[in-house]
């Protein structure tokens, strides 16, 4: 019982009853990470605002959002990313209720594979746009399109690198308190990227296909 029930002041961090010291030590770390995520969200919000402006005024004779957005591909990517969020939830549950390292590692590995699949699909989208001659240098709109999606892409890639480090740490250090709270933070990061992706799908792909 790694994270047994208790007062749950943060999702996933309810070890107050069993181990109050560890709970107290971990709480500011998780709280600090929430604040970092807020700051990161501001970054995405500003990129989305830039995209919103550029997708109206920055076409410059190049492709429109409707032409540049591949709704079918976005659907596959969304399915992959949402599935990866689901499998990460199962990772978190394995961490919280079952001191079961194999389940945890398994679900996290599946999450990583789904993430890799997402990156692969997106890379294919980027390549196909560039193949059509629609590189980011062509217009302000394409610059904004590549930058918004590219920033999300980089975030997911960083999440995967982080995950790789966590696999090594689980092997080397075991599931000690530090490693456990890092997995919780990675989970928050991963779910946030899902939330951001929903925003991107709405703004870039759904709105683009309607425009």
């Amino acid at each position: 019982m790694r994270f047994a029930s208790g007062t749950d002041r943060h999702p996933g961090l309810n070890i107050h009853g069993r181990d109050p010291d560890a709970h107290r030590a971990a709480e500011p770390v998780i709280f600090g990470f929430w604040i970092f995520l807020m700051s990161d969200l501001v970054l995405f919000a500003l990129l989305m605002a830039t995209y919103a402006s550029m997708s109206l005024h920055g076409i410059a004779g190049g492709p429109t959002p409707r032409q540049a957005g591949d709704l079918a591909s976005a659907g596959v990517e969304t399915a992959l990313l949402l599935a990866s969020s689901f499998t990460f939830s199962l990772t978190s549950l394995a961490l919280k209720y079952r001191d079961d390292r194999r389940a945890l590692v398994g679900w996290m590995a599946l999450t990583g594979l789904l993430g890799l699949g997402f990156l692969g699909c997106e890379a294919k989208d980027f390549a196909s746009l560039i193949g059509k001659g629609w590189a980011p240098e062509l217009s302000g709109f394409l610059s904004a399109h590549f930058t918004l999606l590219g920033t999300h892409f980089l975030h997911v890639a960083c999440g995967l690198a982080w995950m790789a480090v966590m696999f090594v740490q689980i092997a080397v250090r075991g599931l000690d308190q530090a490693v456990a709270t890092r997995i919780m933070r990675l989970a928050l990061f991963w779910h946030l990227l899902d939330v951001v992706w929903i925003g991107i799908v709405t703004l870039v792909f759904l709105q683009g296909s309607l425009s």
């Binding site: 830039t50 402006s53 550029m54 410059a60 190049g62 980011p136 240098e137 302000g140 610059s143 930058t147």
Partner: peptide, 23 residues
């Protein structure tokens, strides 16, 4: 974004190709 314009030839804030200094 300014760095992307300068290093990779993007058009966020350039005069031409849909760039917009107001951004």
């Amino acid at each position: 974004l300014l760095a992307l314009d300068r290093y990779l030839g993007f058009h966020f804030f350039t005069n031409g190709a849909g760039g917009d200094v107001m951004n």
